[in-house]
Write a protein that binds this DNA or RNA. Sequence first.
DNA 1: ACCTGAACACCGTTCAAGT
DNA 2: ACCTGAACACCGTTCAAGT
Lengths: 179, 179
Amino acid sequence: MSITHDDIVTTGLDLLDSYGFGDLTMRRIASTLGVQPSALYWHVASKQDLLRAMADVIITDLPPFPGGDLSRIPPWAARFHSLLTRYRHGSELVWSVLTTHTWADGLGSQIETGLIDAGIPPHQALAASRGLLHVILGHGFDDDNRQESKRLGLASSTWPNSSATFDEIIAIFLKGLTS
Amino acid sequence: MSITHDDIVTTGLDLLDSYGFGDLTMRRIASTLGVQPSALYWHVASKQDLLRAMADVIITDLPPFPGGDLSRIPPWAARFHSLLTRYRHGSELVWSVLTTHTWADGLGSQIETGLIDAGIPPHQALAASRGLLHVILGHGFDDDNRQESKRLGLASSTWPNSSATFDEIIAIFLKGLTS
DNA sequence: ACCTGAACACCGTTCAAGT
DNA sequence: ACCTGAACACCGTTCAAGT
């Protein structure tokens, strides 16, 4: 029986969870699937391509950015945050894909037009959309690394609940946008 | 004449500028210095160690976070941003060092106490300090990548002045903090 | 003290050849 | 159609040995 594209993506996400982003290699995916490394390239154009497909899976349940009503942004952001933290190193993966693809422009401009739709002046909407994305992804990435440090025993001092801190940051940002 | 620790750091920063973060390798640094790769390990414990030293150079002129007066934060943030963009891929480097070192805790808690000093409620100060760092580093990283895309000819549509957008984001964030 | 030489255990990717 | 085998051009790091 043949290996499928989905098998590769699923195995990639599994290994991301158990070994982390830095140790996610094509060769390891291949050997996990019991196949030669070169076999992957029949189903996948490159590692970048695979990472992009994995990121797509992680954020596949992200609802469209809510336009018109600013009060619906915090729950949307919280949802985004929870999707990112569902996989270990999920933020790092999504972030790395976002920065190397036009995907960022897609989501970024989606947020931007949503904000304009909600009455934010256009010259602020671009800045706000970038700030929002960076806060969300940066927080997730930061959480990933802190969790990693704890796992390695180099735990820094106690760290407050991440979701509460995240909500607080979003609240601050939104307040600045509307006042 | 011998190679020095500073030579390695300087060459590393040069190669970062001309080849980017992904192509910054120990072997390339060594060959640029006319030396064997293994020779670097007499002066430097590991690549991580070297990256940390490079990041230190990049942000060496960053003034301490201004406590007490919130109005001094925007120029401080702008200074930080300009230091990050002085080197190509400087944000990526600093960001990667920040997330793997206790350095983040150092700068993070410095910002946190500065905010408390300025009258921000303590339960907001932690969230705000993280948000501020993520906005600054995320923006720089994003700029790096956009510049890179332009350099490779895959330029997306025209992109407004980055510093103005950056200042706008900081302004939004501060307004949310004080209102 | 400082570097070379050689090795170890890896990478991503390509491509002819097999089935 | 799908995979193997073998190679190419790389990595970071270690360590005995040279000077």
